[in-house]
């Protein structure tokens, strides 16, 4: 179903292909979920300043962390968290701005109710914002935990990975839909009347 302001699959697919291709050609493949870790690290640093440690050696700054994950890839998460004006972080902030502007200038609009509880949720559970927020929060926990274990998400593995013909992209997509389809049918399928 195409809602007012939405692109058709063809027009939308072409637009998305151009953005994904240009990013891959000029800079690097699009990815988002890493920036959740970077944001975590920025927040974590305000509570525990030792979580990112910087040492200078030969005029170069080296980042490390007592947390094994933040320390991964030569402390790159700590590096990004200490220098948020980097390509990937700005890309994600700008993505949010782009979505906001699009919704104001001609893109599909959601009603006040839709902005709390989407129709697909209402069909099964009625208009229950609190319940929807709990579902969304839990969804976020699983999604990002899984994305970090997989090393990428829908953007990084599926769109960027598969466009590069990466084996990892296919493995990720297989795992996601194997579980997501039965889960969605279970959670949002209309309850059968007895």
């Amino acid at each position: 179903m195409i809602r007012p302001g939405e692109f058709t699959w063809l027009k939308g697919g072409i637009a998305l292909a151009l953005v994904a291709a240009i990013a891959t050609i000029l800079v690097k493949p699009i990815g988002v979920s890493t920036q959740f870790v970077v944001t975590d690290t920025i927040i974590w640093k305000t509570f525990d300043k030792d979580i990112v440690q910087v040492t200078e050696k030969d005029g170069k700054q080296h980042y490390s962390s007592p947390n094994d994950y933040i320390n991964k890839a030569r402390g790159s998460y700590g590096h990004s968290a200490s220098n948020p004006i980097n390509y990937s972080f700005v890309f994600v902030l700008s993505m949010m701005l782009g979505a906001m502007l699009s919704s104001v200038f001609g893109g599909p609009k959601a009603s006040k109710e839709e902005k709390q509880v989407p129709e697909a949720f209402q069909k099964r559970y009625g208009f229950n914002p609190k319940k929807r927020y709990v579902f969304a929060f839990i969804g976020g926990v699983f999604t990002l935990f899984g994305a970090r274990m997989a090393g990428g998400c829908t953007s990084g593995h599926m769109i960027s990975g598969m466009l590069q013909t990466a084996v990892s992209g296919y493995v990720f997509a297989f795992g996601v839909f194997l579980v997501a389809i039965p889960t969605a049918l279970l959670v949002y399928g209309i309850k059968k009347k007895a």
Partner: peptide, 25 residues
């Protein structure tokens, strides 16, 4: 981990109806 992480992702994707990029947007 890409397969198992993808499966865990799948639970959240279905329950939440969003993914990391789309949730921020």
């Amino acid at each position: 981990g890409v397969l198992v992480g993808g499966m865990i992702f799948g639970i959240g994707f279905a329950v939440g109806g969003l993914c990391p990029g789309t949730s921020l947007a």
